[in-house]
Structures are given as structure tokens and as C-alpha cells.
Design a protein around this nucleic acid. Structure first.
Lengths: 186, 186
DNA sequence: CCATTTAAAGACCAATTGGTCTATATATAG
DNA sequence: CTATATATAGACCAATTGGTCTTTAAATGG
């Protein structure tokens, strides 16, 4: 049933929660109505599974980009490059399941609230760790605090996902990300 | 009919486009079904009017915060403080009609695309102008380009709107905004 | 006070929503 | 080969969707 969650995730990702109708999910998962309800309960439960998978994928990718064995500054560059890639052109227009969900459902769905909050905290703490390692290696500019720089980066990349919906060019986005990182590096 | 658009805006703002049902709009505007359709055509047309109003309000506020007669750095501080206020606590949880709309409808609704694109361009150009004035006054740190700093700020404030859905504390958000601005100032 | 426009109330519509259930087909196990 | 479990297709459901239309009430202008 793993593949069904992945396919459902793709539909919710492209259309959002409310705009995804049951026939969309049946078509994407190639499941019958009965099988889908037997396996997942209802639309909302399936959505939460899809969201969980999306979050797990994002955090796993982050862990590999910011791996402890790597040069922290290289990790940050790879992390930002990944976001630039995912927020430019057609991939940018597709958007982000987590940001779309936060805007559509957070504050009205406690299960979503928990997941969104957890994701932002997890992202921020990984960035703060990496920035601390960079600072210890003397790679950060004077006066840059890892904790607040991490919060800035979280806002920046989530903002990239928003502006990315207009499908900006990769070049412009990359230059913007580079300019921000340059402000942090010594 | 101005007040009706304003009330409709408040509903779309709180619930999003798809989750707003006609009875919600009728209740909020205190209009009858017939009157609403006679005045605005349909749900989608009313939504676009509400979005236009939201955008006009945001740009007007920005023009006053970043007024040409003012010290540009003071303007930037006021601008960021406004975002901090609107993205913390309960106001943060309410979210942003423009960001929610971008995530929910951009790429599937050409009228929305045009408006979202216009808004981001307008915001970026206002910020770039203000940053240029700051640079001319010698208030910018060495190596800070107004154009890319403006794009960074657009991403940052839109990211604040996303993370704001978790209702963070005003203090933390303000400290983050201050830390970012400090990276730009000499 | 009357005539005319304007708006309100709400019946009504077909289509769609998420969800259940039954009947049929298909595997699978013995 | 047969018995049983599993999944399919799709009928069916009440509720809700956005939207129209008619009837009644309320303003408004003369």
C-alpha cells in the first residue's frame, strides 16, 4: 500500500486537499473505492499519510545534504541549490505540499498543525547545527548567530516556495540564494 | 457594494477559496443569493475582486511605510515590523490571502497568476527602490546589491507568512527580522 | 398615495461531494 | 479442483456544491 500513498501524495501535492476529489485519488492509486476505504479509512487519513511521507522525504534529503561528515558550508550550498531547483520553472509552479497544506489547513486541523510545526522545528534545528559547525570552523562572518541565521534560512526557503509558484528562472533564484548565503559567510 | 467585497475578502482570507461555500459568503455579506449573483456574477469573480482589494491594501500600506520622504532604513524597519506583527500569534495563524491563493490556485487559474505575479514584482521593486536610496545614503554594508537584497526580502517576508501559520511569538520573529536587516546594514 | 424599481427569501436544479454496501470476479490455499 | 479470502466494479446514499428563478417585501420617486 506504500505505492498508493505515494500516488495519493502526488495528487494532493498538485491539487491541494479540498480540490482533490475521491475520483482523482481512485484514478491515481488505481484502487477501487472499497479497497481505498478498507486500506486507509477515509480521505483525511490518507492525506495525513501522504503528508507524513512528504515530510519524511524532505527531512531525509536534508540529512543527506547536511550530512555531519561533510563540510558544513558545502552542505548549506547543496541544501539551497536543491531548493532553487525545486522552486524554479515548472517544478516551482508545482509548489510544495507542506506549504500548501500549512496555508490551507493549519489552524483548522490539529493533526496538520502538529506535522507542520514539527517540520519547521526539524528543519530549523538541522540548519542551526550545520551553522554551528560552520561557525566552529571559522567560516561564518562576524556577528552571525547560528540560531537566528537558521530561522532566517527557514523563512527564506519557504518564501522561495511561495514566489516559486510564479515559475521564476533558475538563474535569478540561484543568484538570490547565493547573495543571502554570502551575507552569512566570512 | 464595497463593503460586501471587504466582507467576502475576510471569509476567503480565513478559509481559502475552495473551502469557502456560498452560504459562508451570503452570511458574511448579508446579501441574498440573487443579489450576490446580480452584483458580482459568480463566486470566482467575487473572489478576484476580494483578491484585488487585498493586494491594493497591501501595496498602499507598503507605500506609506516606505514613503520616499522618510529615511529608507526607518522605512525598512517599519515594513519588517509590520510583517512581524501580522505573522505572529493569532494574526499569524490567520495567514495571508495572497500566499494562500498563490499556493491553492496559482498555475491553475490564469487570472490569479497575473495578480500574484504583479504583487511580487510590485513588492520587489518598491524594496529595491528603498534599498537603492539606503545605499546612496551610505547605509548599506559593502557588497550588498539593492536588487538581490530586495529579492531576499520578498522571500523572507513571504516565508514569515508561512511559518507564521504555527503562531510563533512576536519576540522570536522580530529578532529574526532584525538579524536579517543587520546583515544588510553597514 | 401610488407606481416602479430594487432587493430579499427561499424553492429549486443538476452535478458533485465523501462514504457505504452488494454483487461479482480473481487469487490463493488446501 | 474446491473452498475461502480478497479485491473489483459500480450501484447507491444523503448532504452539499455553485447557480437560477420566482415570489414577496421593501424602498424610492412622482
Amino acid at each position: 500500500m506504500d505505492i498508493a500513498v505515494e500516488r495519493a501524495m502526488a495528487v494532493f501535492w498538485s491539487r491541494g486537499y479540498h480540490a482533490t476529489a475521491l475520483p482523482d485519488l481512485l484514478h491515481a492509486t488505481k484502487l477501487s473505492r472499497g479497497s481505498l476505504y478498507a486500506a486507509f479509512g477515509d480521505k483525511h487519513a490518507l492525506f495525513l499519510l501522504a503528508l507524513d511521507r512528504y515530510i519524511a522525504d524532505a527531512l531525509a534529503r536534508m540529512d543527506s545534504e547536511l550530512a555531519a561528515g561533510r563540510e558544513p558550508v558545502d552542505g548549506l550550498r547543496a541544501y539551497l541549490a536543491g531548493y532553487v531547483d525545486r522552486t524554479s520553472g515548472a517544478r516551482g509552479r508545482r509548489g510544495c505540499l507542506l506549504v500548501a497544506t500549512a496555508m490551507e489547513l493549519a489552524g483548522r486541523d490539529a493533526e496538520v498543525d502538529r506535522r507542520v510545526g514539527h517540520f519547521f522545528r526539524a528543519m530549523e534545528s538541522r540548519l542551526a547545527d550545520t551553522l554551528s559547525r560552520a561557525k566552529a570552523a571559522g567560516r561564518l562572518a562576524a556577528g552571525v548567530e547560528p540560531a537566528s541565521a537558521a530561522r532566517i534560512l527557514v523563512c527564506f526557503v519557504e518564501g522561495l516556495r511561495v514566489t516559486g509558484k510564479t515559475g521564476p528562472s533558475r538563474l535569478a533564484s540561484q543568484a538570490t540564494a547565493d547573495a543571502l548565503l554570502d551575507r552569512f559567510l566570512g
